[in-house]
Design a protein around this nucleic acid. Structure first.
Lengths: 148, 148
DNA sequence: TCTAATCGTCAAGATACTTGACCATATCGA
DNA sequence: TCGATATGGTCAAGTATCTTGACGATTAGA
């Protein structure tokens, strides 16, 4: 595969990601969570995996601790997240999802699944399965960030 | 494919997009363009396709005309883009890439191709080809935006 | 202990966006 | 032909989100 084809692949991937994030954004809003930005969604998904600290969140999102702290403050004030003192470390404050936070996270998952299901109808089940297999083969585990 | 698998596919796609955009960003910076943000890259790619107006750029990026105008001003002041009066429409100002703009755009393309080539080495040529085929089958033409 | 490192936050400034207003030009119908 | 209306672009001001810098609280290590 030459450079032109490789770049073409990159463009297709970025376009697919744009479609997907747009779909998630719309779906989440349609389910009644109009006040969550994409970055909030990434934060909620991260916190849902067994909780997180502000510092972990910062690294995950690729921003400073202060920015993550501000984001957290917003999520707390809107009732998506709670801050509890970490019993093992008096400095750390463990972030966890509230019931509303879980509902919102599930809404994002449903909206994402919906978009992918749309691709299955437009193309085919086999195509999306091969997409999934190929992606799983190339990606390395790591953070999900609000893109470029 | 159930909802869990569909969401899993979505996560893999977002992770791949994160890897790719990080790779492009690093590659572009390494080639000497440290002052371009991701959004600038999307703008340059759009303008490279035969020029664009501010309004077209705004729609492409999903922002207001004013934001696109400010972005343009920045790209002009840094020597990536020129504004010329549209001969067919006295209102419109056609944006076009300077030589430096082209060099930067090519740098982004090379960096993107490089990342995809890395996937070919890590996985296989066949895997990336099937990725490309699957993506081409599911995506609809449309704008590339700095994602979520 | 005493020192250095880490967690989280406060404060202030930079940056990138928004809404609202405006002028210049183009288009269309009477 | 001309007046109403729409469109392209910009100026100005406000807002949101990020940054850097400083700080107190807590923990870990020499």
């Amino acid at each position: 595969m030459d450079d032109v084809q490789a770049w073409d692949t990159a463009v297709l991937l970025l376009r697919a990601a744009t479609e997907l994030t747009d779909g998630i954004q719309r779906g989440v809003a349609a389910r009644g969570f109009a006040d969550v930005r994409p970055a909030h969604g990434f934060a909620l998904v991260r916190i849902s995996r067994g909780g997180a600290t502000v510092a972990e969140l910062a690294e995950h999102l690729g921003v400073t601790k202060q920015a993550a702290s501000q984001l957290t403050e917003l999520l707390v004030s809107r009732g998506y997240v709670t801050r509890t003192v970490d019993p093992c470390d008096g400095r750390g404050r463990l972030l966890q999802l509230t019931e509303q936070g879980w509902t919102c996270t599930r809404a994002a998952q449903q909206a994402g699944a919906e978009t992918v299901s749309g691709w299955q109808r437009a193309a085919s089940d086999r195509t999306v399965r091969s997409l999934r297999t190929a992606l799983a083969a190339v990606v390395t585990p790591g953070p999900l960030r609000p893109g470029w």
